[in-house]
Design a protein around this nucleic acid. Structure first.
Lengths: 146, 146
DNA sequence: ATAAATGCAAAACTTTTGCACCCGA
DNA sequence: TCGGGTGCAAAAGTTTTGCATTTAT
């Protein structure tokens, strides 16, 4: 809601070590980590970085379009170093979040525009279910308990 | 993550006034309210209900499949008294959440199953953009400032 | 009677923020 | 130098939880 308008031409963003490392960490994982996980990773490189700085930069990078913020009905956010539009799958058993390799259906946005007359900027699609590992474990467990 | 397994046959759920009123409140609005909003509404009927009870029941009703919990990248949840699968639209300007009247594409779940071999239980689709009111206001503002 | 549910308040968690100091351009 | 960025710690906001008590069945 609070969009912090960047007044045209005023604020010029600086390149800091902290911001660079945070982005590096996110770019080099596919695990869709939490802010705290990112913090722990960055600490290995910059031990005295503060959690506040991590949060500030995650928000900044998100606003710059460099990363994406995800939710998944938890009380905390996850972050994705890949800003390209794509879908996600969340395993209800192990909680892992994976990328989904089906094409992005922009025509859905057109449907909404036609149906309701709203401007649609983007959409977000998440699948919930059980990943292969957890399916097999569940199967094994079921066999054992009988 | 913490699924609180309902042991078969043990726990029998009671019908309480608190739970009934909370569900009523959710069933009689289309606004996808927050826990706090629900709390304030229910207080008009049961003045000494506690926020904890509201949270406990919202979680319970969600697990019972009576309501749905929504996220939208905020730090708090929203709740939907309509448990039937449907999509949502969130206005990035005014923050309101509305139902989207396009059919639910279950074939997407089939695509994911085929592509990745995961069991898919359900999916969640959210559109982000600007609602009609906000579009018009934005247009008006743009006219004025020139 | 019995155990699920509540009220109350403290605690837990995630995220934000004020402020003095630091440092990149 | 100048103002954006950082570190630190306190604060804010949402959600959870322990415990004594109430209440539905």
């Amino acid at each position: 809601m609070k969009e912090k308008a960047i007044k045209k031409g005023t604020l010029r963003r600086r390149s800091t070590r902290q911001r660079r490392v945070i982005l590096d960490v996110l770019r080099s994982t596919k695990s869709h980590p939490t802010a705290d996980w990112v913090y722990e990773q960055v600490r290995q490189e910059i031990p005295n970085i503060s959690l506040g700085t991590v949060y500030r930069n995650l928000k900044l990078l998100r606003d710059m379009g460099e990363i994406t913020e995800l939710s998944f009905g938890s009380t905390y956010s996850r972050f994705d170093g890949n800003p390209e539009p794509h879908y996600h799958f969340s395993c209800v058993d192990c909680g892992r979040v994976m990328d989904v390799e089906i094409p992005v259906a922009t025509k859905l946005e057109e449907q909404v525009r036609q149906q309701h007359g709203w401007e649609v900027f983007y959409h977000r699609l998440e699948f919930y279910g059980r990943c292969s590992e957890c399916s097999e474990r569940a199967k094994k467990d079921r066999t054992l308990e009988q």
